[in-house]
Computed example of a mutant assay.
Amino acid sequence: MDFPVTFQIFGKTVLAHPVFETLGIFIGMRYYFYLKRKSSDKLSFNTSAAILIGATAGALFGSKLIGNLENPYALFEKFSLKEIWSNNTIVGGLAFGLIGVELAKKIVRHKESTGDLIVFPLMLAIIIGRIGCFLTGIHEETYGVPTRFIFGMHLGDQYLRHPVALYEIVFLILLWIYLNRIGKHSKFPSGFVFQLFMLSYFIFRFLLDFIKPKVEIIGNLGTIQLVCIGVIIYYIYKIKNTRDLMYNQKTIEI
C-alpha cells in the first residue's frame, strides 16, 4: 500500500483523513439518532437541543485548543489562521465536549446522566476516523515513532513505525465488546457505561502518546497526556462515587 491514500473529489485531491473523519461523524450521528428512537429515556426538545449545542460547541473549541497546544512553540513562531483551524484532537474534543454538556445541563436544570446513549456512536465515529488516520500515513501527525516491534509498518517514509491508528481501532473494538456486556446489566446506574468509556479511553490515550511524536511540555509528557491525567483523575472520582452510591443502595435494600 502506498501512503498517503487520496481521493479525487470534484477534481481535487483529498487526503483520506478528512474523508473518513466526515464519514465517521455522519455515520456516528445516524447511529446515535437510531439508538435515541429506540431508547425508553425521552428527553424534552429543549433539553436535547441544549445538550447537543453544548457538546458540539465544547468539542469544537476543545479539539482546536488542545490540538494547537500540542506544539505551542510552533503556534507562536508562525501564526496562521489556516494552521490553527486545521489542528485538532479527539482528546480535546471529548474533554471539552463533556464540559459543554455539563454546563448545558445546569442551564436547563437537567440532573440525570445523558452519556450512555452516545458511547457506541462515538466509538463508531472514532473507529471510522482512525481508518482515515492510518491511510494518511505520516502526512498528518497521527502516526507512531520508529520501531523494530513486530507490528512496525512503513507509513510513507523509510522507517518502520508504530501504526498507532490501528492500535486504537483494536482497542476500541475490544472496549466496545466489554462495555456492551456491562450495558446489558440493569444493576448499573445511568451514566456508568459512559464513565467507564471515558476512563478507559483516556488511560489508553495517555499510554499511546508515549509511542507518538510529541513536544514535551512537563517532563516527558505532552499536552494531550496532561489533559488525559486531568480527565482520568476526574473519572476515577466519578466512578468511586457511583460505586459508593450502588453500595449504599444495596445496604438500604438489605
Rank of each mutant, 00 (worst) to 15 (best):
M1E: 08
D2A: 10
Q8M: 07
Q8R: 12
I9G: 12
I9D: 13
K12Q: 12
T13W: 10
V14Q: 02
L15I: 04
P18V: 04
P18A: 08
E21T: 05
L23R: 08
I25K: 13
I25L: 13
F26N: 09
F26Y: 12
Y32W: 11
F33H: 12
F33W: 12
Y34M: 03
Y34W: 13
L35H: 10
K38S: 14
S39C: 04
K42M: 04
S44D: 15
F45M: 13
S48N: 09
S48E: 11
A55Y: 02
T56G: 06
A57T: 10
F61H: 08
G62C: 06
K64L: 13
L65F: 09
N71W: 03
P72W: 10
P72Y: 11
L75V: 11
L75G: 09
E77M: 05
E77P: 02
K78Q: 10
K78A: 11
K78V: 13
S80P: 02
S80K: 07
L81H: 08
L81Q: 05
W85G: 02
W85V: 11
N87W: 04
I90Y: 07
V91Y: 05
V91P: 07
G92S: 13
G93H: 04
L94I: 15
L98N: 06
L98K: 06
V101F: 00
I107W: 11
G115F: 02
G115W: 07
I118V: 11
V119N: 03
V119M: 06
F120N: 07
F120W: 08
P121C: 04
M123Y: 05
M123N: 10
L124M: 13
A125V: 02
A125H: 01
A125K: 04
I126L: 14
I127K: 00
G129S: 11
I131W: 01
F134N: 04
L135A: 04
E141P: 15
E141H: 12
R148T: 13
R148I: 06
F149L: 04
F151D: 10
L155I: 00
G156I: 03
G156Y: 04
Q158Y: 09
L160M: 03
L160E: 06
P163K: 03
A165G: 04
Y167K: 10
F171I: 06
L172I: 09
L179A: 02
L179V: 09
G183Y: 09
H185S: 14
H185Y: 12
S186K: 15
K187T: 01
S190M: 11
G191I: 01
F192H: 04
Q195P: 00
M198P: 07
M198W: 05
M198T: 14
M198A: 11
Y201S: 00
I203Y: 05
L208F: 01
I211F: 05
K212S: 04
K212D: 07
P213W: 09
K214S: 14
K214Q: 15
E216I: 01
I218L: 15
T223M: 14
T223N: 11
I224V: 13
Q225V: 09
Q225E: 15
L226R: 01
V227C: 06
V231M: 08
Y235P: 06
Y235T: 03
I236M: 12
Y237G: 08
N241W: 02
T242M: 12
R243D: 05
M246W: 05
N248D: 14
N248T: 11
Q249H: 09
K250D: 14
I252R: 15
I252T: 14
I252V: 15
E253L: 15
